[in-house]
Design a protein around this nucleic acid. Structure first.
Lengths: 217, 217
DNA sequence: ATAACCAATCTTGTATACAAGATTTTCTTG
DNA sequence: CAAGAAAATCTTGTATACAAGATTGGTTAT
Protein backbone atom coordinates (compact mmCIF):
# COMPACT_ATOMS: atom_id res chain seq x y z
CA UNK A 1 0.00 0.00 0.00
CA UNK A 2 1.24 3.47 -0.79
CA UNK A 3 2.41 5.79 1.95
CA UNK A 4 -0.47 8.17 1.30
CA UNK A 5 -3.05 5.40 1.58
CA UNK A 6 -1.48 4.33 4.88
CA UNK A 7 -1.67 7.84 6.28
CA UNK A 8 -5.26 8.14 5.18
CA UNK A 9 -6.27 4.86 6.79
CA UNK A 10 -4.50 5.85 9.99
CA UNK A 11 -6.33 9.16 10.17
CA UNK A 12 -9.67 7.60 9.22
CA UNK A 13 -9.27 5.01 11.95
CA UNK A 14 -8.40 7.61 14.54
CA UNK A 15 -11.40 9.72 13.57
CA UNK A 16 -13.83 6.79 13.49
CA UNK A 17 -12.71 5.51 16.88
CA UNK A 18 -12.97 9.06 18.23
CA UNK A 19 -9.31 9.05 19.23
CA UNK A 20 -9.41 12.29 17.24
CA UNK A 21 -12.44 14.09 18.63
CA UNK A 22 -14.73 16.29 16.55
CA UNK A 23 -13.34 19.81 16.54
CA UNK A 24 -9.72 18.69 16.73
CA UNK A 25 -7.47 20.78 14.48
CA UNK A 26 -5.45 18.84 11.90
CA UNK A 27 -2.55 21.11 11.04
CA UNK A 28 -0.78 20.36 7.75
CA UNK A 29 2.62 21.20 9.19
CA UNK A 30 2.08 19.18 12.35
CA UNK A 31 0.97 16.16 10.33
CA UNK A 32 3.85 16.53 7.88
CA UNK A 33 6.25 16.30 10.82
CA UNK A 34 4.40 13.39 12.37
CA UNK A 35 4.47 11.33 9.17
CA UNK A 36 7.78 12.69 7.90
CA UNK A 37 6.45 13.77 4.52
CA UNK A 38 6.01 17.11 2.80
CA UNK A 39 2.83 19.15 2.83
CA UNK A 40 1.89 18.41 -0.80
CA UNK A 41 0.97 14.71 -0.47
CA UNK A 42 -0.50 15.43 2.94
CA UNK A 43 -2.81 18.00 1.42
CA UNK A 44 -3.98 15.31 -1.02
CA UNK A 45 -4.95 13.15 1.93
CA UNK A 46 -6.69 16.00 3.79
CA UNK A 47 -8.60 16.96 0.67
CA UNK A 48 -9.95 13.44 0.28
CA UNK A 49 -10.85 13.23 3.96
CA UNK A 50 -12.82 16.45 3.54
CA UNK A 51 -14.60 15.05 0.48
CA UNK A 52 -15.76 12.10 2.55
CA UNK A 53 -16.83 14.46 5.37
CA UNK A 54 -14.23 13.24 7.85
CA UNK A 55 -13.04 16.84 8.12
CA UNK A 56 -14.06 20.34 7.18
CA UNK A 57 -11.65 22.74 5.53
CA UNK A 58 -11.95 26.39 6.45
CA UNK A 59 -9.83 28.27 3.91
CA UNK A 60 -6.82 29.99 5.46
CA UNK A 61 -8.01 28.86 8.87
CA UNK A 62 -7.56 25.13 9.17
CA UNK A 63 -8.71 21.53 8.82
CA UNK A 64 -10.84 20.30 11.70
CA UNK A 65 -12.38 16.93 12.44
CA UNK A 66 -16.08 17.20 11.56
CA UNK A 67 -18.78 17.19 14.20
CA UNK A 68 -21.24 14.31 13.99
CA UNK A 69 -24.19 15.36 11.83
CA UNK A 70 -27.36 13.59 13.01
CA UNK A 71 -29.16 14.67 9.83
CA UNK A 72 -26.65 12.63 7.83
CA UNK A 73 -27.17 9.70 10.20
CA UNK A 74 -30.92 9.79 9.64
CA UNK A 75 -30.59 9.99 5.85
CA UNK A 76 -28.12 7.12 5.69
CA UNK A 77 -30.27 4.88 7.86
CA UNK A 78 -33.26 5.61 5.62
CA UNK A 79 -31.15 4.74 2.60
CA UNK A 80 -29.82 1.54 4.15
CA UNK A 81 -33.11 0.28 5.51
CA UNK A 82 -34.83 0.87 2.17
CA UNK A 83 -32.03 -0.76 0.23
CA UNK A 84 -31.46 -3.69 2.53
CA UNK A 85 -35.15 -4.48 2.68
CA UNK A 86 -35.04 -4.94 -1.10
CA UNK A 87 -31.74 -6.83 -1.00
CA UNK A 88 -33.07 -9.27 1.58
CA UNK A 89 -36.15 -9.92 -0.53
CA UNK A 90 -33.91 -10.58 -3.53
CA UNK A 91 -31.80 -12.96 -1.46
CA UNK A 92 -34.85 -14.87 -0.19
CA UNK A 93 -35.38 -16.17 -3.70
CA UNK A 94 -31.73 -16.68 -4.61
CA UNK A 95 -29.75 -17.51 -1.52
CA UNK A 96 -27.45 -20.50 -1.98
CA UNK A 97 -26.39 -22.94 0.70
CA UNK A 98 -22.83 -21.64 0.70
CA UNK A 99 -24.20 -18.16 1.38
CA UNK A 100 -26.24 -19.31 4.35
CA UNK A 101 -23.20 -21.10 5.71
CA UNK A 102 -21.06 -17.99 5.43
CA UNK A 103 -23.62 -15.83 7.23
CA UNK A 104 -24.02 -18.38 10.00
CA UNK A 105 -20.28 -18.47 10.53
CA UNK A 106 -20.18 -14.71 11.00
CA UNK A 107 -22.97 -15.00 13.56
CA UNK A 108 -21.02 -17.73 15.36
CA UNK A 109 -17.98 -15.53 15.68
CA UNK A 110 -20.15 -12.64 16.83
CA UNK A 111 -21.63 -14.80 19.56
CA UNK A 112 -18.14 -15.69 20.77
CA UNK A 113 -17.28 -12.00 21.06
CA UNK A 114 -20.38 -11.42 23.17
CA UNK A 115 -19.40 -14.30 25.41
CA UNK A 116 -15.92 -12.96 26.05
CA UNK A 117 -17.17 -9.69 27.52
CA UNK A 118 -17.96 -6.69 25.41
CA UNK A 119 -15.23 -6.09 22.83
CA UNK A 120 -17.12 -3.40 20.94
CA UNK A 121 -14.60 -3.04 18.12
CA UNK A 122 -14.67 -6.72 17.23
CA UNK A 123 -18.44 -6.77 17.51
CA UNK A 124 -18.88 -3.79 15.16
CA UNK A 125 -16.43 -5.25 12.64
CA UNK A 126 -18.47 -8.45 12.53
CA UNK A 127 -21.66 -6.42 12.29
CA UNK A 128 -20.29 -4.75 9.17
CA UNK A 129 -19.10 -8.11 7.88
CA UNK A 130 -22.62 -9.50 8.18
CA UNK A 131 -24.31 -6.66 6.35
CA UNK A 132 -21.56 -6.46 3.77
CA UNK A 133 -21.94 -10.17 3.08
CA UNK A 134 -25.63 -9.58 2.39
CA UNK A 135 -24.78 -6.97 -0.22
CA UNK A 136 -22.11 -9.16 -1.79
CA UNK A 137 -24.31 -12.25 -1.96
CA UNK A 138 -26.97 -10.17 -3.72
CA UNK A 139 -24.44 -8.81 -6.23
CA UNK A 140 -24.62 -5.34 -4.68
CA UNK A 141 -21.17 -4.87 -3.16
CA UNK A 142 -20.83 -1.80 -5.40
CA UNK A 143 -23.58 -0.12 -3.40
CA UNK A 144 -22.06 -1.15 -0.07
CA UNK A 145 -18.84 0.57 -1.09
CA UNK A 146 -20.74 3.64 -2.25
CA UNK A 147 -22.47 3.97 1.09
CA UNK A 148 -19.17 3.61 2.95
CA UNK A 149 -17.96 6.79 1.27
CA UNK A 150 -20.62 8.77 3.12
CA UNK A 151 -20.63 6.84 6.35
CA UNK A 152 -18.46 8.81 8.79
CA UNK A 153 -21.32 10.30 10.73
CA UNK A 154 -23.27 7.06 10.96
CA UNK A 155 -20.26 4.99 12.05
CA UNK A 156 -19.33 7.39 14.84
CA UNK A 157 -22.92 7.69 15.96
CA UNK A 158 -23.28 3.93 16.11
CA UNK A 159 -20.14 3.60 18.17
CA UNK A 160 -21.24 6.16 20.74
CA UNK A 161 -24.70 4.69 20.84
CA UNK A 162 -23.28 1.28 21.61
CA UNK A 163 -20.93 2.53 24.27
CA UNK A 164 -23.94 3.89 26.01
CA UNK A 165 -26.49 1.14 25.72
CA UNK A 166 -24.58 -2.13 25.50
CA UNK A 167 -27.29 -4.07 23.79
CA UNK A 168 -25.04 -6.30 21.70
CA UNK A 169 -27.11 -9.38 22.45
CA UNK A 170 -30.26 -7.76 21.06
CA UNK A 171 -28.54 -6.83 17.80
CA UNK A 172 -27.21 -10.35 17.47
CA UNK A 173 -30.67 -11.83 17.88
CA UNK A 174 -32.00 -9.55 15.16
CA UNK A 175 -29.28 -10.78 12.82
CA UNK A 176 -30.30 -14.33 13.61
CA UNK A 177 -33.94 -13.53 12.90
CA UNK A 178 -33.15 -11.85 9.58
CA UNK A 179 -31.28 -14.93 8.45
CA UNK A 180 -34.15 -17.22 9.43
CA UNK A 181 -36.72 -15.07 7.66
CA UNK A 182 -34.62 -15.23 4.51
CA UNK A 183 -34.21 -18.97 4.65
CA UNK A 184 -37.95 -19.43 5.13
CA UNK A 185 -38.66 -16.85 2.42
CA UNK A 186 -40.90 -14.88 4.75
CA UNK A 187 -40.53 -11.62 2.84
CA UNK A 188 -43.40 -9.83 4.54
CA UNK A 189 -41.77 -9.58 7.94
CA UNK A 190 -38.32 -8.59 6.68
CA UNK A 191 -39.21 -4.95 6.04
CA UNK A 192 -40.28 -3.97 9.54
CA UNK A 193 -37.40 -5.88 11.13
CA UNK A 194 -34.60 -4.35 9.05
CA UNK A 195 -36.16 -0.97 9.65
CA UNK A 196 -36.04 -1.39 13.39
CA UNK A 197 -32.62 -3.03 13.25
CA UNK A 198 -30.94 -0.10 11.51
CA UNK A 199 -32.82 2.85 12.84
CA UNK A 200 -32.43 2.36 16.58
CA UNK A 201 -33.41 5.50 18.42
CA UNK A 202 -31.72 8.27 16.54
CA UNK A 203 -33.69 11.10 17.94
CA UNK A 204 -33.42 10.23 21.60
CA UNK A 205 -32.83 13.42 23.51
CA UNK A 206 -30.92 11.38 26.04
CA UNK A 207 -28.26 10.61 23.46
CA UNK A 208 -27.99 14.21 22.34
CA UNK A 209 -27.49 15.41 25.88
CA UNK A 210 -24.83 12.82 26.64
CA UNK A 211 -22.67 13.53 23.61
CA UNK A 212 -23.48 17.14 22.74
CA UNK A 213 -19.78 18.02 22.63
CA UNK A 214 -19.36 15.74 19.59
CA UNK A 215 -22.44 16.88 17.69
CA UNK A 216 -22.98 19.45 14.98
CA UNK A 217 -25.21 22.29 16.16
CA UNK B 1 -17.75 30.98 -7.22
CA UNK B 2 -14.06 30.21 -6.85
CA UNK B 3 -11.87 29.79 -9.89
CA UNK B 4 -11.27 26.14 -9.03
CA UNK B 5 -15.00 25.42 -8.80
CA UNK B 6 -15.48 27.08 -12.18
CA UNK B 7 -12.81 24.95 -13.80
CA UNK B 8 -14.28 21.82 -12.28
CA UNK B 9 -17.79 22.63 -13.51
CA UNK B 10 -16.44 23.35 -16.96
CA UNK B 11 -14.62 20.04 -17.14
CA UNK B 12 -17.55 18.11 -15.66
CA UNK B 13 -19.88 19.64 -18.22
CA UNK B 14 -17.56 18.80 -21.09
CA UNK B 15 -17.23 15.22 -19.90
CA UNK B 16 -20.95 14.74 -19.31
CA UNK B 17 -21.88 16.12 -22.71
CA UNK B 18 -19.20 13.91 -24.27
CA UNK B 19 -17.41 16.94 -25.72
CA UNK B 20 -14.49 15.27 -23.96
CA UNK B 21 -14.73 11.66 -25.07
CA UNK B 22 -13.80 8.70 -22.88
CA UNK B 23 -10.11 8.00 -23.32
CA UNK B 24 -9.18 11.64 -23.87
CA UNK B 25 -5.97 12.59 -22.09
CA UNK B 26 -6.20 15.51 -19.66
CA UNK B 27 -2.67 16.81 -19.33
CA UNK B 28 -1.93 18.93 -16.27
CA UNK B 29 0.36 21.26 -18.16
CA UNK B 30 -2.04 21.67 -21.09
CA UNK B 31 -4.92 22.46 -18.74
CA UNK B 32 -2.80 24.87 -16.70
CA UNK B 33 -2.11 26.81 -19.89
CA UNK B 34 -5.73 26.71 -20.99
CA UNK B 35 -7.02 28.05 -17.67
CA UNK B 36 -3.98 30.24 -16.92
CA UNK B 37 -3.35 28.77 -13.50
CA UNK B 38 -0.54 26.75 -11.97
CA UNK B 39 -0.48 22.98 -11.75
CA UNK B 40 -1.14 22.83 -7.99
CA UNK B 41 -4.78 24.00 -7.94
CA UNK B 42 -5.35 22.14 -11.19
CA UNK B 43 -4.20 18.93 -9.56
CA UNK B 44 -6.77 19.53 -6.81
CA UNK B 45 -9.47 19.66 -9.47
CA UNK B 46 -8.21 16.55 -11.28
CA UNK B 47 -8.00 14.65 -8.00
CA UNK B 48 -11.62 15.40 -7.21
CA UNK B 49 -12.74 14.50 -10.72
CA UNK B 50 -10.99 11.14 -10.28
CA UNK B 51 -12.71 10.60 -6.91
CA UNK B 52 -16.07 11.05 -8.60
CA UNK B 53 -15.02 8.71 -11.43
CA UNK B 54 -14.99 11.36 -14.13
CA UNK B 55 -11.38 10.43 -14.82
CA UNK B 56 -8.83 7.77 -14.00
CA UNK B 57 -5.33 8.64 -12.84
CA UNK B 58 -2.53 6.39 -13.99
CA UNK B 59 0.49 7.37 -11.87
CA UNK B 60 3.32 8.88 -13.89
CA UNK B 61 1.33 8.27 -17.04
CA UNK B 62 -1.64 10.59 -17.15
CA UNK B 63 -5.23 11.55 -16.39
CA UNK B 64 -7.76 10.20 -18.87
CA UNK B 65 -11.50 10.63 -19.16
CA UNK B 66 -13.11 7.44 -17.84
CA UNK B 67 -14.86 4.98 -20.09
CA UNK B 68 -18.56 4.45 -19.37
CA UNK B 69 -18.96 1.56 -16.94
CA UNK B 70 -22.26 -0.25 -17.57
CA UNK B 71 -21.87 -2.12 -14.27
CA UNK B 72 -22.03 1.22 -12.47
CA UNK B 73 -25.08 2.19 -14.55
CA UNK B 74 -26.89 -0.98 -13.54
CA UNK B 75 -26.07 -0.56 -9.84
CA UNK B 76 -27.17 3.09 -9.78
CA UNK B 77 -30.46 2.32 -11.50
CA UNK B 78 -31.13 -0.43 -8.95
CA UNK B 79 -30.37 2.03 -6.16
CA UNK B 80 -32.55 4.74 -7.64
CA UNK B 81 -35.53 2.57 -8.49
CA UNK B 82 -35.51 1.03 -5.00
CA UNK B 83 -35.17 4.39 -3.31
CA UNK B 84 -37.64 6.29 -5.47
CA UNK B 85 -40.25 3.59 -5.07
CA UNK B 86 -40.11 4.21 -1.32
CA UNK B 87 -39.97 7.99 -1.71
CA UNK B 88 -43.06 7.99 -3.93
CA UNK B 89 -44.93 5.90 -1.39
CA UNK B 90 -43.93 8.34 1.33
CA UNK B 91 -45.10 11.24 -0.81
CA UNK B 92 -48.46 9.63 -1.54
CA UNK B 93 -49.38 10.12 2.08
CA UNK B 94 -47.77 13.54 2.56
CA UNK B 95 -47.83 15.45 -0.69
CA UNK B 96 -49.06 19.01 -0.33
CA UNK B 97 -50.89 21.02 -2.94
CA UNK B 98 -47.92 23.30 -3.51
CA UNK B 99 -45.80 20.23 -4.24
CA UNK B 100 -48.24 18.93 -6.83
CA UNK B 101 -48.32 22.36 -8.44
CA UNK B 102 -44.53 22.50 -8.64
CA UNK B 103 -44.31 19.07 -10.26
CA UNK B 104 -47.02 19.91 -12.78
CA UNK B 105 -45.18 23.06 -13.75
CA UNK B 106 -42.03 21.08 -14.51
CA UNK B 107 -44.07 18.71 -16.66
CA UNK B 108 -45.57 21.70 -18.51
CA UNK B 109 -42.16 23.03 -19.36
CA UNK B 110 -41.02 19.59 -20.41
CA UNK B 111 -43.97 19.31 -22.77
CA UNK B 112 -43.02 22.62 -24.36
CA UNK B 113 -39.50 21.35 -25.01
CA UNK B 114 -40.91 18.29 -26.74
CA UNK B 115 -43.11 20.52 -28.88
CA UNK B 116 -40.21 22.68 -30.04
CA UNK B 117 -38.32 19.77 -31.57
CA UNK B 118 -35.94 17.62 -29.59
CA UNK B 119 -33.67 19.76 -27.44
CA UNK B 120 -32.18 16.87 -25.53
CA UNK B 121 -30.18 19.00 -23.08
CA UNK B 122 -33.19 20.98 -21.93
CA UNK B 123 -35.26 17.81 -21.73
CA UNK B 124 -32.70 16.03 -19.55
CA UNK B 125 -32.31 19.03 -17.27
CA UNK B 126 -36.06 19.05 -16.68
CA UNK B 127 -36.01 15.28 -16.19
CA UNK B 128 -33.48 15.76 -13.40
CA UNK B 129 -35.51 18.67 -12.03
CA UNK B 130 -38.58 16.43 -11.78
CA UNK B 131 -36.83 13.60 -9.96
CA UNK B 132 -34.90 16.00 -7.76
CA UNK B 133 -38.14 17.73 -6.77
CA UNK B 134 -39.50 14.36 -5.66
CA UNK B 135 -36.52 13.86 -3.38
CA UNK B 136 -36.76 17.37 -2.01
CA UNK B 137 -40.49 17.19 -1.34
CA UNK B 138 -39.92 13.96 0.59
CA UNK B 139 -37.13 15.53 2.66
CA UNK B 140 -34.51 13.43 0.90
CA UNK B 141 -32.48 15.96 -1.07
CA UNK B 142 -29.45 14.77 0.88
CA UNK B 143 -29.74 11.40 -0.86
CA UNK B 144 -30.22 13.01 -4.27
CA UNK B 145 -26.94 14.86 -3.78
CA UNK B 146 -25.23 11.71 -2.61
CA UNK B 147 -26.27 9.84 -5.73
CA UNK B 148 -25.07 12.67 -7.96
CA UNK B 149 -21.55 12.10 -6.68
CA UNK B 150 -21.52 8.67 -8.31
CA UNK B 151 -23.57 9.47 -11.37
CA UNK B 152 -21.09 10.09 -14.21
CA UNK B 153 -21.58 6.75 -15.85
CA UNK B 154 -25.35 6.82 -15.60
CA UNK B 155 -25.65 10.38 -16.93
CA UNK B 156 -23.50 9.68 -19.97
CA UNK B 157 -25.27 6.41 -20.65
CA UNK B 158 -28.65 8.12 -20.48
CA UNK B 159 -27.55 10.80 -22.91
CA UNK B 160 -26.29 8.31 -25.47
CA UNK B 161 -29.37 6.19 -25.04
CA UNK B 162 -31.59 9.17 -25.74
CA UNK B 163 -29.64 10.27 -28.77
CA UNK B 164 -30.31 6.88 -30.20
CA UNK B 165 -33.92 6.22 -29.38
CA UNK B 166 -35.65 9.62 -29.22
CA UNK B 167 -38.48 8.52 -27.01
CA UNK B 168 -38.87 11.72 -25.07
CA UNK B 169 -42.64 11.59 -25.32
CA UNK B 170 -42.76 8.16 -23.65
CA UNK B 171 -40.65 9.33 -20.72
CA UNK B 172 -42.86 12.37 -20.30
CA UNK B 173 -45.99 10.24 -20.18
CA UNK B 174 -44.43 8.07 -17.47
CA UNK B 175 -43.72 11.18 -15.41
CA UNK B 176 -47.35 12.18 -15.82
CA UNK B 177 -48.52 8.74 -14.71
CA UNK B 178 -46.26 8.74 -11.65
CA UNK B 179 -47.72 12.04 -10.54
CA UNK B 180 -51.27 10.79 -10.98
CA UNK B 181 -50.62 7.60 -9.06
CA UNK B 182 -49.22 9.68 -6.22
CA UNK B 183 -52.16 12.03 -6.11
CA UNK B 184 -54.59 9.11 -6.08
CA UNK B 185 -52.45 7.32 -3.49
CA UNK B 186 -52.29 4.21 -5.65
CA UNK B 187 -49.11 2.90 -4.04
CA UNK B 188 -49.34 -0.59 -5.48
CA UNK B 189 -48.71 0.39 -9.07
CA UNK B 190 -45.89 2.85 -8.35
CA UNK B 191 -43.24 0.18 -7.83
CA UNK B 192 -43.41 -1.48 -11.23
CA UNK B 193 -43.69 1.85 -13.06
CA UNK B 194 -40.70 3.54 -11.45
CA UNK B 195 -38.71 0.38 -12.07
CA UNK B 196 -39.49 0.43 -15.77
CA UNK B 197 -39.06 4.19 -15.95
CA UNK B 198 -35.49 4.17 -14.67
CA UNK B 199 -34.14 0.92 -15.95
CA UNK B 200 -34.85 1.23 -19.66
CA UNK B 201 -32.93 -1.41 -21.57
CA UNK B 202 -29.49 -1.32 -20.11
CA UNK B 203 -28.30 -4.60 -21.41
CA UNK B 204 -29.35 -4.16 -25.02
CA UNK B 205 -26.60 -5.52 -27.21
CA UNK B 206 -27.64 -3.03 -29.83
CA UNK B 207 -26.58 -0.19 -27.56
CA UNK B 208 -23.26 -1.79 -26.75
CA UNK B 209 -22.44 -2.27 -30.41
CA UNK B 210 -23.33 1.30 -31.32
CA UNK B 211 -21.18 2.94 -28.66
CA UNK B 212 -18.46 0.40 -27.95
CA UNK B 213 -15.78 3.07 -28.38
CA UNK B 214 -17.09 4.86 -25.28
CA UNK B 215 -17.50 1.80 -23.06
CA UNK B 216 -15.28 0.19 -20.49
CA UNK B 217 -14.23 -3.29 -21.54
C1' DA C 1 -8.91 50.33 32.90
C1' DT C 2 -10.58 49.85 28.35
C1' DA C 3 -10.87 50.09 23.59
C1' DA C 4 -8.81 50.42 19.21
C1' DC C 5 -5.24 49.56 16.27
C1' DC C 6 -1.14 47.49 14.56
C1' DA C 7 2.19 44.01 14.14
C1' DA C 8 3.76 39.36 14.66
C1' DT C 9 2.53 34.77 13.81
C1' DC C 10 -0.45 31.46 12.93
C1' DT C 11 -3.19 29.06 9.06
C1' DT C 12 -3.88 27.28 4.13
C1' DG C 13 -3.32 28.58 -1.08
C1' DT C 14 -0.26 28.96 -5.11
C1' DA C 15 3.73 28.78 -8.05
C1' DT C 16 7.69 26.49 -9.34
C1' DA C 17 11.88 23.73 -9.34
C1' DC C 18 13.26 19.22 -9.24
C1' DA C 19 12.61 13.90 -8.85
C1' DA C 20 11.32 9.71 -10.80
C1' DG C 21 8.84 6.65 -13.67
C1' DA C 22 6.89 5.73 -18.55
C1' DT C 23 7.12 6.42 -23.30
C1' DT C 24 8.92 7.61 -27.58
C1' DT C 25 12.46 8.64 -30.50
C1' DT C 26 16.89 8.17 -32.25
C1' DC C 27 21.09 6.15 -32.92
C1' DT C 28 24.06 2.34 -32.97
C1' DT C 29 25.18 -2.21 -34.07
C1' DG C 30 24.54 -6.63 -35.93
C1' DC D 1 17.36 -3.21 -43.15
C1' DA D 2 16.12 -4.67 -38.59
C1' DA D 3 16.53 -4.94 -33.72
C1' DG D 4 17.93 -3.43 -29.52
C1' DA D 5 19.78 -0.20 -26.48
C1' DA D 6 20.31 4.35 -24.94
C1' DA D 7 18.97 8.98 -24.59
C1' DA D 8 15.70 12.59 -24.92
C1' DT D 9 11.16 13.90 -23.69
C1' DC D 10 6.96 13.12 -22.18
C1' DT D 11 3.98 12.25 -17.86
C1' DT D 12 2.75 12.89 -12.76
C1' DG D 13 4.78 13.05 -7.75
C1' DT D 14 7.19 15.71 -4.19
C1' DA D 15 9.46 19.39 -1.74
C1' DT D 16 9.73 24.06 -0.78
C1' DA D 17 9.56 29.06 -1.08
C1' DC D 18 6.48 32.60 -1.06
C1' DA D 19 1.60 34.84 -1.01
C1' DA D 20 -2.37 36.12 1.36
C1' DG D 21 -5.99 35.79 4.62
C1' DA D 22 -7.17 34.99 9.79
C1' DT D 23 -6.07 35.17 14.44
C1' DT D 24 -3.78 36.56 18.50
C1' DG D 25 -1.27 39.38 21.42
C1' DG D 26 0.57 43.51 22.76
C1' DT D 27 0.97 48.37 22.74
C1' DT D 28 -0.72 52.81 22.70
C1' DA D 29 -3.94 56.41 23.23
C1' DT D 30 -7.96 58.02 25.46
Amino acid sequence: MSIKAEIMNTLKHEILTLALKPGTILSETALSERFQISRTPLRDVLKQLALESYTDIYPKKGNIVSYIDLESVEQITYLRSTLEKEILKDLSSQLLLTGVHELKEILERQKEVIGKGNDIDSFLNLDDAFHRALYRLAGREFLWNLIQQSNVHYLRYRRLHMLKTEKLEGIWKEHQSLLELMVHKDTEQIGPLIYHHLREDIHSLDFQENFSEYLKK
